[in-house]
Design a protein around this nucleic acid. Structure first.
Length: 786
DNA sequence: TTAGGATTGG
């Protein structure tokens, strides 16, 4: 992560920075000079809200003041931060903090400034190779007299050193600071007294639990916990003994920080205090707790998508609010959606149209995707002021099927019962929350016309497979006896018990019969990775923003007219009418000196936006984003897809690819019937094609033991191509339903279906030890499950 | 003060 929080000790600032970097003063900063090994340091005096540029790039502007040269004529500079880095910086940077940047671009402004600011600004982005360091310190704000009038500046005060007590060393009657992993929590609710209340149970590596009752009149000052596994730091919590156990309760000056508990996620605290201390060693504490929690806390909680809900269970739902209505004094209706479709008919709470708040058109469009959740009693007061459009996590919703015994399938009802048992409640998630970002992107990708069309498809599926409840039961019974997976080879082998496998040496192959107790990742789309078969590396699929930024960046290079209309392609160019006057060139590859039908055509585009490229892929067979050099077209950075075909973005391995000239494509164009296969295109362009794979960890159990086995699958196991899952809503739902059959949520171990699998054991050695791993192979989901 | 985890009603 390029944005780092550093501990900077006064007089030794820079001790933690890379040693090749040297401090540059604002006076010496010039456009065109080499600042490669320089950094700028100053105090943030103004920060503007995070905004988006026209093309969707995040943009964050701050003003940084050189605190060592406060009274010189030029003492501050505008810093413009773009893309992912803008977002990251906006999260953690507050006025008064020390900001350090290296790897910036210096851009001179056309007009001279008279406000003491530099006549250049700095441009900062991940793509430009910038690195940002932020020092968070407790600040003292003072006003200094200066030649140009009074001036506000900030001084760092020495931060107090906090001591954290492990949970097994707590004593009654003390006030302490603690770190812990959230094992259980109730989102803030209105207590019977005067305050908001949140109950939080922590655990730490001493394996001791501490349940805390936190009160505050201000909901924002309670910890912003969104899920079990989050990590919290409490300052000044009072410890007392209750029923023979230690408990925590808020005391004066209580303060908390909350961190995402995911290993590897940015260590960015969630807090309402503007000023807090957070040192480098504390970042380590959070990272260590994350690693401890990963193997000691079960966070595969009852989260669900609407497509995965089953009758009669309790689950947490992350969703967007699209409508609300008062029903009566003790209940309130929330209409929400998460982009997926509940596979069962859902109830509609009757309310008068005039009582329903929300955008009418959207409510109509979502009539088959949105569900009604009725919240009761204490939740009503929190539900009433919720903003339409906001993102919610509703905890422990009860999905209830009224007359399950009835011949007619009665719809599923969703209730948030009164009370706070099991953490029942409603939390509002900020837009910066990673789950919200992901949900937002997914909601945007939902084609509402499609989902209406799919409605008939879905209900057909449901009708034929689960015609009524009896059929559903039969289906489940069948799953319990027969295996929900089948072997595609080696059927002659007999089963081996897991205990035997665990005590045997590797490598070996086994046939097993086991149950799937749990699996990771629970969010199925996170299982999709890109794999390079040459260097054997796995990487995340780049997100839309990465591509967007590369496109934005390459649009800065104008198409070179000398490269237009060659023997093997025909070019069209135009300039956009908007303010930016972007130049776009499209090169249509010819066959036999003729243009082909659009559906057979490969084209190369320069200067296009994400949206434009996406539209072209709908019409044309293949699209390759390129840019001009002096003498040829070339591919963009390999973090961007080098080829788009249908719904699939094809990526190349940065390490193993050696891009070749684009004119090599002409050899394919000259074939009798060019098929424009991605593998062939990759080959002539010197690209090592990355393959989409599912990578999952299955925890398998039988009567004798348990083991974790990896699934590494292109499309054989799920019979769904990994390459298409990210862009196909229907396939995502299908995969979720498959996993719900293999591992039905809320079922006891005895009720889980059996899986027949082939697994192979293999050794992984490092300097310290040898470890045995297991991989599933030659296995596929049974035909009547998918 | 409030809550002190521990579902299933409308």
């Amino acid at each position: 992560m390029p944005v780092q929080l550093l501990k900077i000790i006064e007089g030794q600032s820079g001790t933690s920075l890379p040693s090749h970097l040297q401090k540059e003063t604002l006076q010496h900063l010039r456009e065109g000079c080499d600042h490669t090994n320089k950094y700028i340091q100053g105090i943030v005096t103004i920060s503007y809200p995070l905004t988006k540029l026209r093309d969707g790039t995040d943009f964050f502007k701050i003003v940084v003041q050189d605190s060592d040269h406060l009274c010189s004529q030029i003492n501050s500079i505008n810093v413009l931060i773009y893309g992912k880095m803008a977002e990251d910086c906006a999260k953690i940077i507050r006025n008064g903090e020390t900001f350090i940047v290296a790897g910036f671009k210096v851009i001179k402004l056309p007009t001279a400034r008279e406000d003491g600011r530099h006549d250049c600004h700095l441009e900062v982005s991940e793509e430009a190779g910038s690195a940002v360091y932020v020092c968070e310190t407790e600040m003292v704000q003072i006003i200094l007299p200066c030649s140009s009038g009074n001036m506000t500046c900030f001084l760092c005060s020495v931060a107090p050193k906090y001591v954290y007590t492990p949970l097994n060393h707590l004593k009654g009657g003390t006030v302490v600071n603690v770190y812990g992993v959230v094992k259980f929590f109730k989102p803030p609710y209105i207590s019977k007294g005067t305050d908001y209340c949140s109950v939080v149970t922590l655990v730490d590596p001493s394996n001791v639990k501490l349940t805390c009752s936190l009160f505050s009149g201000n909901r924002d000052s309670l910890p912003k916990i969104y899920k079990v596994g989050d990590i919290v730091r409490f300052h000044r919590i009072k410890i007392s003994e209750y029923n023979g156990q230690m408990q925590g309760i808020t005391s004066g000056g209580f303060a908390s920080l909350t961190f995402d508990g995911t290993v590897g996620a940015p260590v960015v605290p969630r807090t309402s205090s503007r000023v807090y201390t957070f040192m480098e060693e504390e970042q380590k504490t959070v990272e260590e707790l994350r690693i401890w929690a990963a193997s000691n806390i079960s966070i595969s909680g009852p989260a669900a998508k609407l497509s995965g809900v089953q009758p009669m269970l309790f689950f947490d739902l992350t969703c967007q609010l699209v409508g609300k209505a008062k029903v009566d004094g003790s209940s309130f209706l929330l209409k929400v959606w998460d982009g997926t479709k509940c596979p069962y008919p859902t109830w509609k709470v009757p309310v008068e149209a005039k009582d329903l708040e929300g955008e009418k058109v959207l409510l109509h469009q979502l009539r088959n995707l949105a569900v009604d959740i009725l919240v009761y009693d204490n939740h009503v007061q929190l539900a009433e002021p919720l903003q339409i459009g906001s993102f919610l996590r509703i905890y422990s919703i009860h999905s209830k099927q009224a007359n399950a015994d009835n011949e007619d399938v009665s719809p599923i009802e969703f209730h948030l019962h009164g009370g706070t048992c099991y953490g029942r409640g409603i939390g509002v998630l900020p837009e910066s929350n990673p789950d919200v970002k992901e949900l937002k992107a997914f909601l945007e990708s939902v084609d509402l016309t499609d989902s209406q069309n799919m409605e008939s498809m879905c209900s057909m599926d449901v009708d034929s497979t689960f015609g009524n409840v009896t059929d559903l039961e039969l289906h489940l019974q069948r799953c319990q006896q027969l295996s929900v997976t089948v072997l595609t080879d080696h059927q002659d082998l007999s089963n081996t018990e897991l205990k035997t496998i665990i005590i045997s040496t590797a490598p070996q192959q086994y046939r097993i019969r086991a149950k799937l107790r749990t699996y990771k990742p629970q969010k199925l789309h996170q299982s999709v990775k890109l794999y390079c078969s040459k260097c054997k590396s796995l990487q995340e699929v780049p997100d839309r923003d990465d591509f967007d930024f590369i496109l934005h960046d390459s649009a800065g290079t104008a198409p070179n007219p000398e490269l237009h209309n060659t023997s093997w392609y025909e070019s069209v160019t135009w300039t956009t009418q908007d303010q930016k006057q972007r130049e776009i060139a499209i090169h249509f590859v010819k066959h036999d000196e003729m243009l082909q039908h659009p559906e057979d055509t490969l084209l190369m585009i320069e200067g296009g936006t994400l949206k434009e490229i996406w539209k072209l892929t709908k019409r044309f067979k293949c699209v390759i984003p390129v840019r001009s050099t002096e003498d040829d077209l070339e591919l963009l950075d390999l973090s961007a897809p080098f080829l788009l075909r249908g719904n699939v973005k094809y990526y190349g391995c940065k390490q193993c690819s050696t891009p070749k000239p684009m004119k090599n494509l002409s050899s394919i164009a000259a074939e009798q019937q060019p098929s424009w296969e991605p593998t062939e295109i990759a080959q002539v362009l010197g690209i090592e094609l990355l393959q989409y794979v599912f990578v999952m960890k299955f925890t398998l159990v039988d009567e004798t033991g348990a083991l974790n086995a990896y699934l590494f699958d292109y499309e054989k196991f799920f019979q769904i191509p990994a390459s298409e899952i990210l862009t196909n809503n229907f396939l995502q739902q299908k995969m979720q339903m498959t996993m719900n059959t293999l591992c039905p949520p809320g079922k006891k171990l005895g009720d889980l279906p059996w899986l027949e699998c082939f697994i192979r054991s293999y050794n992984v050695r490092d300097a310290m030890k040898n470890q045995v791993y297991y991989q599933i192979f030659d296995t596929t989901v049974a035909e009547d499950v998918v």
